[in-house]
Amino acid sequence: MKHLSILLLSIFLLQSCIQDDIIDDRVDASFSITNPISEITLSDTFQLTTKYTDNVGKTVTTNITWSSSNEMIATVSNSGLVTAVAQGQTTIMASIVSEEGETITDEIVVTVTMDQVDNNTTQEKTGTIRTTSSYVLEGTFTLREIPNTNNLELVINDNYRASSSLPGLYIYLTNNPNTVNNAKEIQAVRVFNGAHTYIIEDTGINDFSHILYWCKPFSVKVGEAEIQ
């Protein structure tokens, strides 16, 4: 009888945990310039970087084609190094061919100016946490770079609430909010109400696109948030 009760409880928790959970692990392939700029000082250079994730959210290294719509204003090298040549405006474009043979592009409009421009400021992003299950999970957050490190600070705000009755809840960074495959585990969730902070080591602010809350015992998603 005891074993039957445990089994029924496990089934109940699993059903509650799943609810609207997404079963399909595929996502759209994504390619973007991860450190876009809008201005650059005449004669300065700036190194652009990119990120390509495939249809399961895995970061993939691939060949990138760079171009400038007006090389009289600014040039861009094969490695993405922008050089400001003259005052004016140009479009810098990066493109790849995905594993499925699709060409994916991203572009930025850059103005070359005589003014001094600082493009090395720290970045921060925000987002809203939402539940994908029957459990309470909500709130907002800020993800910011920690100066002079390769670490991030994830600040969960005061409006955060989560159900404490869910066993084995973990938080991840991921490019595919449907699975923990290729995700970076942050830690087990120990705070279920109010503001708290996570320090994430050896991670860039553009490395991942989503926060994922995952129920480890039943291997299902509980909630997610897009990093914007």
Rank of each mutant, 00 (worst) to 15 (best):
N176T: 06
T174I: 04
S164M: 06
Y172E: 05
V189H: 00
N193S: 14
P167E: 11
K184I: 05
A162S: 10
G168E: 13
N176P: 05
V189M: 01
N182G: 11
Q187M: 15
L169N: 04
Y172R: 03
L166K: 13
E185N: 11
N178K: 09
A188Q: 05
V180S: 08
L166V: 13
N176A: 05
N175T: 05
P177K: 09
I171P: 00
G194W: 00
N175I: 04
T179I: 05
I171E: 03
A183T: 02
G168M: 10
S163H: 12
S164L: 06
N176K: 03
R190M: 15
L166R: 13
L169S: 06
N175W: 01
S165N: 14
A162D: 07
G194V: 02
T179Y: 02
Y170M: 14
N175P: 01
S164G: 13
S165P: 15
A162Q: 06
I171W: 00
S165Q: 15
E185A: 08
T179E: 07
Q187A: 14
N193V: 04
K184Q: 09
S165E: 15
V189C: 01
L166C: 14
F192S: 03
R161P: 05
S163V: 08
Y172G: 05
P167F: 09
A162I: 05
E185F: 06
N176Y: 01
V189S: 00
G168V: 11
T174K: 07
Y160H: 10
S164D: 13
T179D: 07
P167R: 10
Y160G: 06
S165W: 15
N176V: 03
L169M: 10
N182Y: 10
A162C: 11
N178F: 09
L173T: 07
P177L: 11
G194Y: 00
R161E: 14
Y170K: 08
E185V: 08
S164R: 07
Y160A: 14
N178H: 10
Q187D: 15
F192R: 01
A162H: 02
A188D: 01
I171Q: 02
Q187I: 11
P177A: 13
P177V: 14
Y160S: 07
I171D: 02
P177R: 09
R161Y: 13
N175R: 08
G168D: 11
N175D: 10
Y172Q: 07
S163R: 08
R161K: 15
S164N: 11
K184N: 11
N176F: 03
Y170G: 07
P167S: 10
I186Y: 04
E185H: 10
N181M: 12
I186C: 02
G194M: 04
S165L: 15
N178V: 11
T174Q: 06
Y160P: 01
F192H: 07
G194T: 02
I186D: 08
I186K: 04
N176S: 05
I186S: 00
L173R: 09
E185S: 12
V189I: 06
L166S: 10
L173K: 07
Y160W: 12
V180F: 03
P167H: 08
A162L: 12
P177D: 15
V189E: 00
Q187P: 07
V191L: 13
Y172I: 08
Y170N: 10
S165V: 12
A162T: 03
P167Y: 08
R161C: 11
P177Q: 14
